[in-house]
Design a protein around this nucleic acid. Structure first.
Length: 259
DNA sequence: AACAACATCAACCGCATCCTT
DNA sequence: AAAGGATGCGGTTGATGTTGT
């Protein structure tokens, strides 16, 4: 069936997002949510296609994103899940709170693939590479396959079972950000700060996700905006369990993050 | 200092899948 | 059941940054 392009190609901007565009998008989404991505750019005053807006939001602007490289545990988990799920990056990402499929995919292609190959493991099949005369040289990441080789030797048979590590990550969503090199993005601080300072009625706290959201753990949130929480899954706000609308402290939180 | 080679990652593209009519 | 639209997903690309010569 012939499909129309996702957006009108004429006049649609492409390429890197500017801080101003980011601000507009964040502003719009936190205020209105997104009824449908196709209409978001028009309503937000952006010359972008809806797809691009969705990608920018899910991969970069979402407040629950972790930043920085995957730590060893996360990397191990990705390897573990990849052995079971293959290149289903979104499924893998779903097990790593605060990580995106794109980020994991990139990390896999740039780091993990090489690491596994170096260790004598086929990154596709997760089987040892057959080089009988090439002695296996454990590297700094050798631990990866202590459990992995046992656990993932048979990819399909264990597909529904999760290793203890996998279970740990899939359930423990309140891990400390400090262990993952959760670097802050100054640009993001500015964007979010400006967004919230523009609307001082915002005010909420995220009691269960404090560490993950860092400086964004306390935000101001008007009751009028509460409706977007109904759609929080769409935003990837998985950590927003309960919002305490009575605890508002935007000044100390937001202003302290300003450069 | 200048250039090349390599690494990283944000963003795009096209197809798949889901949902509505 | 079929058609068409919206969104999601995975592969790929290209710009930018980093490292080596």
């Amino acid at each position: 069936m012939g499909r129309q392009p996702c957006c009108d190609k004429l006049g649609v901007k492409k390429g890197p997002w500017t801080a101003d565009e980011d601000k507009k998008l964040v502003n719009f989404i936190i205020t209105h949510g997104h009824c449908c991505w196709r209409s978001v750019p028009k309503l937000a005053g952006l010359r972008r296609c809806g797809k691009s807006c969705r990608l920018r939001w899910t991969n970069y602007l979402r407040p629950d994103l972790k930043r920085g490289l995957l730590n060893d545990d996360e990397e191990q988990l990705v390897i573990d899940l990849h052995a079971r799920l293959g290149n289903r990056w979104s499924k893998i990402a779903a097990r790593l709170p605060g990580r995106t499929d794109n980020e994991i995919k990139n990390h896999w292609n740039t780091h993990i693939k090489k690491k596994l190959t170096k260790m004598g493991i086929d990154p596709v099949t997760h089987e040892p590479l057959h080089k009988p005369d090439t002695p296996y040289e454990p590297s700094d990441g050798a631990a990866i396959n202590d459990h992995h080789s046992k656990d993932c030797g048979n990819v399909s048979s264990t597909a529904t079972e999760l290793s203890p590590l996998t279970e740990k990550f899939s359930t423990d969503e309140s891990r400390s950000s400090s262990e993952s090199g959760n670097e802050e993005d100054p640009l993001m601080n500015v964007i979010w700060s400006e967004v919230f300072l523009n609307d001082l009625s915002w005010n909420f706290t995220v009691p269960d996700s404090r560490e993950e959201y860092g400086e964004l753990d306390t935000l101001s949130w008007s009751l009028d905006n509460r409706n977007i929480l109904d759609d929080h899954q769409s935003f990837g706000f998985g950590g927003f369990n309960e919002i305490d609308f009575n605890s508002l402290d935007i000044n100390t939180t937001i202003k302290s993050s300003l450069p």
